[in-house]
Design a protein around this nucleic acid. Structure first.
Lengths: 230, 230
DNA sequence: CCGATTCCTCACGCGTTCTTCACGGGCAGA
DNA sequence: TCTGCCCGTGAAGAACGCGTGAGGAATCGG
């Protein structure tokens, strides 16, 4: 089920959206402030974001940048500001669409369909291979031969290990900066020390790489980040 | 260069778009009818399509479906029809955005940037060639033949080397002053001595140039700065 | 309440990278 | 020809980043 995060400080708009979206069987989570929004997005990563620019605590642009620091989730801006300057700013900051209030509900829904259509396109590659192991993104399963018996066994990954692996595998071949990884796994807050990363990468390698001390797929790019090489 | 197909039957709009897009160094091809549009798209596949719904020969919806049959190119609808029913139809038919006339040019351009931003993901990343080596800006990867074996190997660049190379490569052919380079790599503080630069340029040349002491692409402009010649 | 798993933190060792300096060569102007 | 200036190159110590092991805190399930 597609999960939508709706951020707006006007309760009646929040309610109207909630009702209409739930009726289309979206899962809806809501936030009324910028802080709430970022926290909610980190805890339950949404597939779509509907964002009002006029929030009480921070500017909506801050939310866009806060999200774009670690996720590519499509963002639709819903705002009362009609000036094209505002629109350009929001779109260039990383938003994907901009609808001005008052708005037609059916148009908004159509635009959301467009966004979810696009974002799903690249994601379907449910199986990835690392050495002897097969990773099934969809069912969150890692299978491979046992160390000695050779039988096919499922490898146990902890939630943190899984999130880390997922981020890397979803950007095959690309370098993923430590910032990105930390934000994706531990939330958008600032993480000055990246020692978690080293620990968990080590654990992943120990579970997935044939020779953990000489990784062939879970590569380190010193000073920059990590890379999953398919 | 990004190629845009603009489809509209009103000459003045066609001209206005053409001028503005060319000024942003897009490559523009135009069509005034549905048939022309489909033919042009087939002959020179565009990276973006701007489409007016009110064409003389066929309905714009036909063009959308005609394109969607074989390509995922982003389509932005530019139409005088403001009814949300029209918008929903077009968006559900496969369009990616919908702007109503009259429109603000800067907003349209911003929306085009959004579309090209999204579509570039996953498709062909910008690659730059230096001698035998290929630089992939998107995934931060440099590949080339090994010095002896000739096999394809990835070249290890340190973070500083990478930053330096990136600045140069992103301004192909242009002269980049030492001030600019120092500021881009080592921060905006003042750097009276430019000896870092010489050291790291040397290292880059040693890793990328066939004859490091006689560079062909990473050129020195004495007293001024450096230049990447493609 | 207890045990097991998972998460977070720290310190150490090692290899790499950064920074700095000195020296030599090419080139232009005096 | 001499003299600066600027650039390339090599070397060396310092600083940094990474992998690893271990231990305690937190969490979860029974």
């Amino acid at each position: 089920m597609t999960r939508i995060l709706v951020v707006d400080d006007e309760p009646q708009i929040l309610r109207a959206l909630q009702i209409n979206l739930r009726a289309r069987s979206y899962e809806v989570i809501t936030a009324a402030t910028a802080k709430e929004a970022l926290r909610a997005a980190a805890q339950q990563p949404p597939d779509l974001v509907v964002l009002d620019l006029g929030l009480p605590d921070f500017d909506g642009g801050e939310v866009i940048r806060g999200l774009r620091g670690w996720t590519d989730v499509p963002i639709l801006i819903l705002s009362g500001r009609t000036q094209s300057r505002e629109k350009v700013q929001a779109l260039d900051a990383g938003a994907d669409d901009y609808v001005t209030k008052p708005f037609a509900m059916d148009e908004l829904l159509a635009r959301l369909r467009v966004l979810s259509r696009r974002s799903i396109r690249g994601e379907d590659q449910p199986e990835v291979v690392i050495g002897d192991y097969t990773i099934d993104l969809a069912s969150q399963l890692v299978t491979g031969p046992d160390r000695e018996s050779g039988e096919s066994v499922t490898v146990r990954l902890t939630p943190t290990e899984w999130k880390l692996l997922e981020v890397l595998v979803r950007h095959p071949g690309k370098l993923v900066s430590q910032r990105q990884l930390l934000a994706a796994v531990w939330g958008p807050a600032d993480h000055p020390d990246s020692s978690y990363l080293r620990v968990y990468m080590g654990q992943l390698r120990r579970k997935l790489e044939r020779d953990p001390s000489r990784p062939r797929q879970l590569l380190t790019e010193p000073g920059m980040g990590y890379r999953f090489s398919p």
